[in-house]
């Protein structure tokens, strides 16, 4: 038996919106301590990893570990039934064939229920090595989102360079070339802060198209954390207050 109730259902709605363009079918792992999922996009370039702790739920019960195979496209359609102020409850029996999703609005007394059919997914689970990232950049999520969006209109690829003084996003395309450079900024206004933690400088190139997809999660968190290592995929991380973390991994583009 699994049951989890989230008071702020909008968070779950946003999570689904933030991953639906990247992954199609996903195994959701239920454990007594929380909910997690890991899935790659069809081209094996990007990976989504979500971890939600039971502590963030108003009510959480999972007697055993369970795997719920879900079509994210269909889950997104069901989530559209939810009002932004709804509480969301997820329910599944042992050996379940469907996931029951209940939307409740205590103010308007409206309740919506949907039984989403589960599917069997034979997905490849990747072991992500523990990595000590040599550059970690914490940046306002709205600002990072805007930088990526605007640069994408100029080039498909961005080169991210870090050093102890700044993080730089540079592009080179048919239009010309240029860069956005952000220095370490720990101003009193928290939302303006850009925090650089660089032990070793990194320079890597990435497809901006994916960054734009990841940035759909910017409404979940005020800050985006970029974790870089010269020999590793980029991690774009969004902390979800009191609930968990949504991470995206992106393989770099490599020069011939």
């Amino acid at each position: 038996m699994f049951e989890a109730k989230l008071t702020e259902g909008l968070i779950l709605k946003k999570i689904v919106e933030s991953i639906k363009d990247i992954v199609t079918d996903v195994n959701i792992d239920i454990s007594p301590s929380g909910i997690s999922l890991q899935a790659m996009d069809s081209s094996h370039v990007a990976l989504v990893s979500l971890n939600l702790s039971m502590d963030g739920f108003e009510h959480y019960r999972a007697d055993t570990n369970m795997v719920l195979g879900v079509s994210i496209a269909n889950l997104a359609k069901v989530m559209k039934l939810a009002d932004n102020n709804d509480q969301i409850t997820l329910q599944a029996d042992q050996e379940a064939t469907h996931l029951k999703i209940i939307f409740e609005n205590p103010k308007t007394e409206r309740t919506t229920e949907f039984n989403l059919n589960l599917i069997t997914i034979d997905s490849e689970h990747l072991a992500i090595p523990e990595t000590e990232y040599s550059s970690v950049v914490t940046i306002n999520s709205g600002e990072f989102s805007k930088i990526c969006k605007e640069l994408f209109s100029l080039s498909e690829t961005v080169q991210i360079t870090t050093n102890t003084d700044y993080v730089q996003f540079s592009v080179e395309g048919e239009v010309g070339s240029g860069q956005v450079r952000l220095g370490h900024n720990d101003s009193e206004k928290k939302e303006d802060q850009t925090i650089l933690e660089v032990s070793e400088s990194v320079q890597q190139q990435f497809a901006i198209r994916y960054l734009n997809m990841f940035n759909k999660a910017s409404t979940l968190s005020s800050f985006t954390r970029l974790c870089l290592h010269q020999e590793q995929p980029l991690v774009v991380e969004f902390k979800i207050d009191n609930l968990g973390v949504l991470k995206y991994f992106l393989a770099p583009k490599i020069s011939d």
């Binding site: 094996h44 370039v45 990747l126 072991a127 583009k253 490599i254």
Partner: peptide, 14 residues
């Protein structure tokens, strides 16, 4: 010229 790497090159199938 750059080529898009795949995650499989970095992460092991578990």
């Amino acid at each position: 010229k750059t080529n898009q790497a795949r995650l499989d090159c970095f992460f092991k199938a578990g």
